[in-house]
Design a protein around this nucleic acid. Structure first.
Lengths: 134, 134
DNA sequence: TTAGGTGCAAAACCTTTGCCATCCC
DNA sequence: GGGATGGCAAAGGTTTTGCACCTAA
């Protein structure tokens, strides 16, 4: 049931490739900079439009957790994130999703809770190092 | 060691009062509109500056969880939030914090995990109603 | 008295959009 | 061919900042 209303374009493929090739959770701006290395005259509008399309298609996910700048990642099974409070780095955390929290929250509120987003905060390895040194 | 570098001003007190008087998790803009009812010529810059100061002082908290617009609330013990995917409403969820997740995440990543932010998603009561009707 | 605060407006950001030429199917 | 897409630039929305005047302590 692929709704073939999309064409495959160099720009879109490049953006997807960039996201597949990084473990960062990059911002649109970073993706734009990377993309320009291959297609120098690609525009930011194109980057944003394609990120929106890829997100709608379900190929990538928007990470809106904390901070005002949206970050993106290749679509994966649900997982948690960690954000370093010092350097701002965002990383995946591979521990099981606490599904029971959804049930608890649903019972508490009477709402229909379908999922949750969670972001751990603290210091990453690098920043722990530099804290010790400092 | 109280760094008494702050003065108490009408504007700041009003903003705090507004936040104390609501269970919404309002945006800066909503706070600004409310504030103008009492101090008509208060400026947005003042609202933003005071929200930043109150946040720094620990009297209020910034809610950056998902969405690009920052929301604010009076500082409370740590708690989770629920955001309705239909109407965008944000509410507190009073279930215990899953502290063990911090430990799990710390063990998994080797990072120093100090806390986590969690937002449930789904449909609130009102929107469940309208879904049934629709 | 004076450091911090205010109002105003402009600037800075991030993101979206209009327009028209271009490209893919 | 024709609708989807791209590039460009302007517009939009949120937040920050510079500046001159003001005010709480």
């Amino acid at each position: 049931m692929n709704t073939n209303k999309y064409k495959e374009t160099r720009q879109r493929e490049l953006i997807l490739l960039i996201l597949k090739g990084t473990h960062r959770h990059p911002t649109a701006d970073w993706i734009y900079d990377e993309a320009r290395k291959k297609i120098p005259n690609i525009s930011k509008g194109t980057v944003y439009r394609n990120l929106a399309i890829l997100s709608e298609r379900g190929e990538i996910a928007e990470l809106n957790l904390s901070g005002t700048i949206t970050r993106y990642e290749i679509k994966q099974p649900p997982h948690y994130h960690f954000r370093c409070e010092q350097c701002g780095k965002v990383l995946d955390v591979n521990i099981p999703i606490a599904e029971e929290l959804n049930r608890k929250a649903g019972k508490e509120t009477g709402f229909k809770v379908t999922y949750h987003q969670l972001e751990f905060r603290g210091l990453c390895k690098d920043c722990q190092q530099s804290s010790k040194k400092g």
